[in-house]
Design a protein around this nucleic acid. Structure first.
Lengths: 192, 192
DNA sequence: GTCTATACCACGATAGAC
DNA sequence: GTCTATCGTGGTATAGAC
């Protein structure tokens, strides 16, 4: 535990990419092992089941979201921070050459696998909404309004993530994210 | 062809439900056959491959969308029609007891299966956007604006479809759809 | 046209040598 | 700790009897 052999981490990163591309059911452990440069049967030394590997992938995404929130926290006002957050979401949506929808895919895939795993994937959305809700609260919005706006923001960003797959056009997508940014700017509230 | 034995149709409907619930990769043809009340090996008489079954499922969804558009066409104004369309989307999002995201899941699943199948699934979104764009055009919006608004509308509805899975709360979801309806009402344009 | 039996392969998971 | 060999299951798809 003091010094992870980093093979475990390589497996998680490989699984993350393959689950993203081919889905949970569509990814074999042999594929994951090969992509990670680890012998096939060896996966089971680090993860007792495929589900445990999926849990590690969700944890890894949680770390991404946390780092992403921290980066957006650099903004001077809640509006600025939310727009930085949106930039991060846009970047993720157009990242790589294969367009896809990481959180949505994981949520829908893992939900079907087991109740427990599905709820775990849902916490990714909850984590995003918690942080964005905090920003709306800092605009002196009452709790219910801040919560509703956080849901709206995350849902709109998520919707664009799927639209990105259909359009596969960075320019059009950028304009749609700008539309959300304008909505954020239109939100009333005192500074910081 | 004159009189389909309806077994083929039963297979399509069963596949539609199972692909929705368990995804394409997570659904076996044996499961589909059983759900349709058809002997396992018999699937191949009607569909040469699993991919061809998926094509039939997409076609079936196209028929749904078309019927859905026609129902929404009963509205007197473009705004009314778009709000009826949104009602249809809401109904689909809360239909059944298992929350899920039919179009998104199908798109992401089939995209990974083959380029051809992925493009076919994308036509479902194009079909929705074509009809909604027509409504915005009838509000005397210029083509680019109508197109952008149609994309916004479909993306926001899609985002709520995913939010529905996370929240699993009809009331909150209804409020979010109302928010989009208000946006539709705020759209400028002459009547019909 | 309909159904049974089965070929063939890939998957998740395990046992045990090193 | 690491890797190989393999088990058992369940998948797609086919052959061929009725």
């Amino acid at each position: 535990m003091v010094k992870p052999p980093d093979k475990k981490d390589r497996l998680v990163q490989a699984a993350k990419l393959l689950f993203y591309r081919r889905g949970f059911a569509g990814t074999s452990l042999a594929d994951v092992a090969e992509a990670a440069g680890v012998p096939a049967g060896n996966v089971y030394y680090y993860f007792k089941t495929k589900e445990q590997l999926a849990e590690a992938v969700v944890s890894s995404y949680h770390a991404n979201i946390q780092g992403w929130n921290q980066a957006a926290a650099a903004g001077d006002t809640p509006q600025q921070r939310l727009k930085l957050w949106l930039d991060g979401y846009y970047q993720m949506s157009v990242d790589g050459d294969d367009w896809n929808c990481p959180f949505g895919r994981l949520l829908i895939d893992l939900r079907q696998q087991s109740k427990r795993l599905g709820e775990l994937a849902a916490t990714l959305y909850e984590s995003m909404m918690e942080w964005t809700e905090g920003q709306f609260s800092r605009m002196s919005q009452p709790p219910e309004q801040a919560r509703a706006n956080a849901q709206t923001l995350v849902a709109r960003a998520q919707g664009l993530g799927v639209l990105a797959v259909v359009l596969q056009d960075r320019q059009e997508l950028r304009a749609h994210f700008q539309e959300i940014a304008d909505w954020v700017d239109s939100q009333k509230g005192s500074q910081r």
